[in-house]
């Protein structure tokens, strides 16, 4: 299936979270913090810490680690 990563079409497989999909592409950095502009990636991996938040289908602050990839999904990360 196809998804869009920062507007670019990318091949992806099912049964994968947004977070693990990005990590497998060596995308360790998922966002910059709002006060100090510091890079952050996945930390807890299970939806507790909200460090891995990304914009998915125009909705901000979605936890990459617990959001399953879907065909056509548009993911925005800042690195």
């Amino acid at each position: 299936m196809k998804i869009y990563l920062n507007g670019v079409e990318v091949e992806a497989t099912e049964n994968e979270s947004v977070g693990t999909f990005l990590l497998k592409r060596r995308q360790q950095v998922l966002r910059k913090t709002r006060f100090n502009d510091q890079p952050r990636g996945m930390f807890c991996g299970i939806g507790v810490c909200f460090d891995c938040i990304v914009t998915i289908d125009d909705i901000a602050n979605q936890r990459a680690c617990i959001t399953q990839l879907r065909s056509g999904m548009r993911i925005e990360v800042t690195s």
């Binding site: 049964n15 994968e16 979270s17 977070g19 693990t20 990590l23 497998k24 360790q28 950095v29 998922l30 510091q38 890079p39 952050r40 990636g41 996945m42 930390f43 807890c44 991996g45 299970i46 507790v48 460090d51 680690c65």
Partner: peptide, 30 residues
């Protein structure tokens, strides 16, 4: 869920909880 302790640099990308590292591996081999 994992109990965490802070230390300088624990917020850098590449720093995960032990449970998180295990979770992404078990869930998808990441």
């Amino acid at each position: 869920y994992d109990r965490s302790l802070p230390f300088p640099g624990w917020d850098l990308p590449g720093s995960m909880t032990a449970g998180g590292a295990q979770a992404i591996l078990k869930a998808s081999g990441a």
